[in-house]
Design a binder for these strands. Sequence first.
DNA 1: CGCTTGGTTCAGTTGACACTTACGCAAGTC
DNA 2: GACTTGCGTAAGTGTCAACTGAACCAAGCG
Lengths: 107, 107
Amino acid sequence: MDAALKAVAEPRRREILRIVWSEELPATEIAVRVGEVTRSAVSQHLAVLKGANLVVERRDGTRRLYRSNHQEMARLRSFLDEYWTTGLERLRDAVEAHERNTGGTHG
Amino acid sequence: MDAALKAVAEPRRREILRIVWSEELPATEIAVRVGEVTRSAVSQHLAVLKGANLVVERRDGTRRLYRSNHQEMARLRSFLDEYWTTGLERLRDAVEAHERNTGGTHG
DNA sequence: CGCTTGGTTCAGTTGACACTTACGCAAGTC
DNA sequence: GACTTGCGTAAGTGTCAACTGAACCAAGCG
């Protein structure tokens, strides 16, 4: 999930994600549409996105087709929803640990 | 919004955001709870978060109290929801522009 | 004014990373 | 097997950002 957030934080990778959002495309075609950078750069971005499970790769002979992984994107979204509030219990644990260490200096 | 995503991509800043999620705290106290890094580092993180409007600062004499900006967090969440799908119109523009350039190589 | 407390900002270091060029590798075609 | 197409990987470079330590600014106290 950390990897997913970092991946999405990159504008170029967001662009790629949008390009393959509604259609499956080969790496070269993605690189053409992105423009401005080399195929190599796009390939490396695709590797990062694949590592974060944000895109799915399908092989077709010598070609590799990519598409966005909507499911993982949804997970990312719900992470942003729940991480903070769900963390309240963990936060309270942290506060209690802190109070044990300091003698309760802040409350 | 780009700034917000980049800010949230940093684990330390996410930690800070969660620390001040449900209570307003002074910078030093935040630094103590974060631990592991200096006040200076935390101060710089707070500046980034403030720049992304993800935290709000309130001055109280010599102290500065921080808290998470839930509203902006909600905006960030809905951005992740809508960016890709809303972008379909823009994507179609891009595709059409691409087809004008290539003569429609991909169907 | 000097001192303390709370906090930011400046200068410099270090590691990560986006990028390019060059090369390597797989899969077809002849 | 040579040649081409499609794409990943390796090596090297420049830039950015997270961090530390020191200096600095603001506010209260004597």
